[in-house]
């Protein structure tokens, strides 16, 4: 493993621990939904994919990152603090009386582009921004992270068809394919597979990646600004809900609650063990 990737993996563990601490302290927040997205977010924010400037957060040339799965807000809040949009002390006030943010994403937080929590919105707004950039011949890219459960929303497919038809090749969607929804696995609820075929049928370029391999994600996005295709790109990133904390993975009960007491301690130990085993 290269030193760069190794450093990014360490960042992933640091962020996982941060998300767990935030949610345990607040006794709320979507821990497992955040954990499945950690490696994707590390690739985007720390792997040199996204252009952003915490010192000039309204910079016109910044890439737009739209977190469409707004329930992963603890993760984005932790990332934005860590890269310098605001003080990391703010994370201790997650969902607290004196804090600036809560369980779902809100756009007045520095570095956040869009309020999100209701699903099926961010993706369409991201496509609108990408269309505006093409109209204005601006070169920034728009990235958006969707949940796989979010793909049940009909508006996702309205936007998917629209984005391909309008050749929004400056739009990149990443689907966090963790297979787990609020109550059950997606393939038991209403099957989402074959996901690649669905996106391809809508006119998108599709890549399927291991969503916990930062190396794979970075390779998939390496030439994202100079693609020859006119079509938008979607990465279907296979992930595990709760990745990094084995005692929280693949159990729908942990979708909307933070572990407390012994469960919280066990989760911390799980995370540490996993990190030491790497």
């Amino acid at each position: 493993m290269s030193a760069v990737i190794s450093g990014l993996k360490n960042k992933s563990y640091e962020l996982r621990k941060r998300v767990l601490d935030m949610c345990v302290k607040a006794q709320t927040g979507h821990v497992t939904s955040s954990l499945s997205s950690v490696d994707i977010m590390v690739a985007l924010y720390y792997g040199g994919v996204l252009k952003y400037d915490p010192e000039n957060r309204h910079w016109d040339g910044r890439d737009r990152f739209i977190l469409s799965k707004g329930q992963a807000s603890p993760l984005l809040y932790a990332v934005l603090a860590d890269v310098g949009f605001y003080d990391t002390a703010e994370l201790d006030r997650f969902a607290q009386q004196d804090g600036i943010f809560g369980v779902h994403l809100q756009w007045d937080v520095p570095g956040v582009e869009l309020t999100s929590g209701s699903l099926g919105h961010g993706f369409g707004v991201a496509a609108g921004i990408a269309l505006g950039a093409i109209m204005d011949r601006e070169l920034f890219m728009t990235f958006t992270l969707l949940g796989d459960g979010e793909c049940y929303e009909g508006s996702i497919w309205e936007t998917a068809m629209f984005a391909a038809h309008n050749n929004l090749n400056n739009l990149v969607a990443i689907v966090d394919r963790n297979y787990l929804c609020v109550t059950d696995f997606t393939e038991n609820i209403v099957a989402l597979e074959p996901m690649e075929d669905k996106w391809r049928a809508c006119g998108w370029n599709v890549k399927r990646v291991n969503g916990h391999s930062i190396k794979d994600i970075l390779e998939a996005l390496e030439f994202v600004r100079s693609r020859r295709s006119h079509k938008p790109l979607v990465l279907i990133a296979d992930t595990v809900k709760g990745e990094g904390i084995d005692c929280l993975t693949n159990d729908p009960i942990w979708h909307g609650q933070a572990p407390r007491g012994r469960d919280a301690e066990r989760a911390r130990v799980c995370l540490l063990t996993r990190q030491n085993d790497e």
Binding site: V125, A127, I129, S155
Partner: peptide
């Protein structure tokens, strides 16, 4: 023509695309 966008019969998407364009200053 460059100022006209047809979303098809997709009202949800029309509002979302509109919001994105508005954020871009349109």
């Amino acid at each position: 023509p460059t100022q006209f966008v047809n979303t098809g019969i997709a009202e949800q998407n029309s509002i979302l695309i509109g919001a994105g364009l508005a954020l871009k200053g349109k």
